[in-house]
Design a protein around this nucleic acid. Structure first.
Lengths: 155, 155
DNA sequence: TATTGTTATACTCTATAACTATA
DNA sequence: TATAGTTATAGAGTATAACAATA
């Protein structure tokens, strides 16, 4: 039962990503949210984008974004407000309820990931975090993006 | 530019999972497949389950599975065959075309994850793989599942 | 009666194309 | 004309409930 069996690196990364996504999804559905809604609320945590900016941030077509925001607005999670500077534009923001929901969900998700990491001894845990950080930094650099850029600065 | 900035562990794991899922999704859409179809083909690589087993493997309702298999069958990727032993049951399997597709896609995905890991120095890469393996093994043990059980034995 | 699978129905999510209003 | 956003429409994916066929 304690054999040193080892997953190949590709399968390991793929499996890990499914485990993490599974946790996220569980918390989402517990809140009666879809992953799309979670992403929307997450993006709005530190931004008040126009519909077009929102579409780009989520990687969706603007018409898809209209529907996504419609449904979130109907549930009282986000709100639309006309832009001050452009009569064609709309700014989307979290309502207080939406913010409360996403904050609580993020806290519970964080706790669960922390529990997951707690399965490793502290030294291993620190090594893993450091290695993942380095990998993501290298990946971001390769993509020409800045992993640590503030949300407001994202164009 | 070379500061030792570090993501907190929770954000790191979450980000990493999004990067990996993003790679998977890119390869899927390049093949004109949805993630649901990719999962279906992936599960069928080493199994020929009944509809009900398939639903459980994918974590879907049996009616959702009917639709998923319908669409894959219409595209010639999978096939249904009546069970020898139970007149109510149907066994689902990959067609040759489906197997070719999933094999090619898996190879390309593997190459890309390998490239990603190649951003780290070899020693770090090995450490990361080992740590991820240990984490997944511990997680599987906690869930009472066996990470290394052969597909046929999954009941 | 219980189980396997499909069908009917409804909702979310997504995209393309056409449209309205503003710039 | 060009841009921001919505609407119309279509298809995939998912679930619940009702059903048919088999055990």
């Amino acid at each position: 039962m304690t054999e040193e069996q080892q997953l190949n690196p590709v399968d390991g990364l793929a499996q890990l990503s499914f485990v993490i996504q599974g946790l996220l999804e569980r918390h989402a559905t517990a809140q009666d949210l879809s992953m799309a809604q979670v992403r929307l609320l997450g993006v709005l945590r530190d931004r008040t984008p126009t519909m077009l900016e929102l579409a780009r941030l989520l990687g969706l077509d603007k018409s898809s974004t209209t529907g996504l925001v419609d449904r979130a607005e109907r549930r009282g999670l986000v709100q639309r407000a006309p832009s001050d500077t452009d009569g064609r534009s709309v700014r989307v923001s979290l309502t207080d309820g939406g913010r409360a929901l996403v904050t609580a969900a993020a806290a519970r998700f964080g706790a669960e990931v922390t529990d997951l990491l707690g399965l490793l001894p502290p030294a291993d845990r620190d090594s893993l975090s450091g290695l993942i950080s380095r990998l993501l930094v290298a990946h971001a650099a390769q993509q020409g993006t800045d992993l640590f850029a503030p949300a407001d600065a994202e164009t």
